[in-house]
């Protein structure tokens, strides 16, 4: 067989299989649509000196308030991702609408606030039941905060 023909067949086979497989899979943009309830806030990493078995990784309500005070997601407990890239957040007497976008390979969640402020969260896990977001906190508290959500409605 002619070498050019072999290359062409190889290319068509790889590309064909690639796009066939891709068409069967749900993209993170489709996966994220629905209503999510915040279940926990934890430290993902802490100083090694402070780590021992008794250390509680859960972020206390007071620290959570301090961390999220200036964030778009402040006091939001239920997040509803719409198809039109709209995000509705509900919480303690709070209700607001934002825009969401996914970046990278679908691993970065970008939230556009009302005052043109933009925040980025790393999507660590996203499946039909659970979503885990990480974000770096710019405070005296060192480390990454891990936010876990459970799906309420698809």
């Amino acid at each position: 067989m002619n070498i050019k023909f072999r290359y062409l067949i190889g290319f068509i086979l790889v590309a064909g299989n690639y796009f066939t497989l891709l068409s069967f899979l749900q993209s993170p943009e489709e996966n994220i649509i629905g209503e999510w309830k915040e279940v926990s806030w934890e430290y993902e990493k802490i100083d090694s000196l402070a780590s021992d078995d008794s250390f509680d990784y859960m972020v206390t309500d007071h620290i959570k308030q301090q961390i999220s005070r200036n964030l778009i997601i402040h006091e939001a407990e239920v997040w509803r991702f719409g198809k039109n890239e709209m995000l509705e957040m509900k919480g303690n007497g709070l209700s607001k609408s934002l825009h969401w976008k996914l970046k990278g390979r679908g691993n970065i969640l970008q939230l556009n606030g009302t005052h043109k402020n933009i925040e980025h969260y790393l999507i660590q896990e996203l499946n039909s039941e659970r979503m885990i977001l990480h974000f770096n906190i710019d405070m005296q508290v060192r480390g990454i905060v891990k936010m876990t959500f459970e799906r309420i409605n698809a």
Binding site: L21, L22, L25, K103, N107, E125
Partner: peptide
């Protein structure tokens, strides 16, 4: 875009990570 475009070594590491996590869509991307 939050993605590197001139270093491929990192993409191999990410590919392996996505496969091990079972994130097949991201692995294909």
């Amino acid at each position: 875009f939050f993605a590197f475009t001139s270093n491929v070594t990192g993409h191999y590491a990410i590919l392996a990570q996505e496969i091990s996590n079972g994130n097949w869509y991201q692995a294909l991307v």
